[in-house]
Design a protein around this nucleic acid. Sequence first.
RNA 1: CGGGGCAUGGCGCAGUCUGGUAGCGCACCUGCUUUGGGAGCAGGGGGUCGCAGGUUCGAAUCCUGCUGCCCCGACCA
Length: 439
Amino acid sequence: MRRSRYFLPILRQDPKEAEIVSHRLMLRAGLVRQASAGIYSWLPFGHRVLKKIERIVREEQDRAGALEVLMPTIQSADLWRKSGRYDDYGEEMLRIKDRHDRDMLYGPTNEELITDIFRDGVRSYRELPRNLYHIQWKFRDEIRPRFGVMRGREFLMKDAYSFDLSAQAGRHSYNKMFVSYLRTFERLGLKAIPMAAETGPIGGDMSHEFIILADTGESQVYCHKDLIDMAVPGDDIDYDSDLEPVVRRWTSLYAASDDEHDPARFEREVPAEARISARGIEVGHIFFFGSKYSKPLGCVVQDGQGRNVAVESGSYGIGVSRLVGAIIEASHDGAGIIWPESVAPFKVGLINLKSGEAGTDRACDDIYAKLSNARIEVLYDDTSERAGAKFNTMDLIGLPWQLIVGPRGLADGQVELKRRSTGEAVSLSIDDALGRLSA
RNA sequence: CGGGGCAUGGCGCAGUCUGGUAGCGCACCUGCUUUGGGAGCAGGGGGUCGCAGGUUCGAAUCCUGCUGCCCCGACCA
């Protein structure tokens, strides 16, 4: 993409409403614009990141055997009355009336709807287990939206729902999502730590929040330092195998957020030098809730003895739009964003230091064509801005690689390849630079 | 929902106290000179001063009501 043809509105100054760093950088680097409190429009640059995160989340859900569906944003109030949550959910739920005066709502989550869908489609235990997920916009009318996209009212969430015959079988479904979350966050370039969370009606240890450490996080968290570099299951993980050992390894070390934190246990179980007390951002939450929705909604299957049994369910959320902010919180410096390569909107920024100079233009056009042909995502700054402005813009928007081309280097057949994360730069020939970027 | 604050061109702000017909920096447009870490000079375009009502010869400025947004707290993917 040529910057001269792109829509990338950069702000040189911090908008005054943006308090935390990810919000500031998202506005400055032209990822989003606020439409109203807690509601954002995604501009081309931010939209690319959102889609890349979504893709990784989808790939890892699919790998774990979950099946993608797409449920609507607008739901009828009926199902929510049956589950009893129409009254329980409170002011956070945005209620709407249609022209016939029917009660509708903008979905804050989808347990009711998915349970209804599943009930209509499944009769027999032979069709279990199943896990259905979708990636859809939600609306929760937060009392106080803040931190940009991190606590918006409208947000993009992946939510999955598992259906099993028994609680024991449900545990395996839960473990699958647990493992898939470890892999998902790793691929997003994040160190996410599963932490015991409030367990809800069923009890047990079947609820975890996945939290990444960042100074600006909303929650205070405590954990053993070994969790930070604990190895994540690789591509060869077999989701049909017993995942209990993996889950046990990850949950045997102490990790808790503020509300579940037990200082005495923390000090007893974790040696002083291994204790980490930090701020964290919740990017995922999984929990098992048994028959909480299947019972009131009549979602039953026949078991092997012909008896009707309410299915056992869990739900599993990842805040996709929140992750854009969370990744920036975890990966930036004074100059701007530093995108992990897996979610970067473009892999490389090509900087023409002297647009309008025939030789430099020719070299850049040639490099741009070669990168494009090799399907390497490149943002080519072909504008007539001065070099300094281009450098600053490129640092701000945080593409992993900068390929810097100017007449001075070209005279010796050299260009400069700079890595955004370290600032380290090398001079090399155009072919070598292209070779490195293709690797 | 309690407490605090803000609203003036795309962004950041001054002007409001003390009423007199809107200004600065950046951005934008034109030209010239420049060009390896946010260039200089000259010229130029753009504002219902959040909305409604009131006071006044005259309102960005004073009064009343409303709306939007931000921050702190309690609550949450």
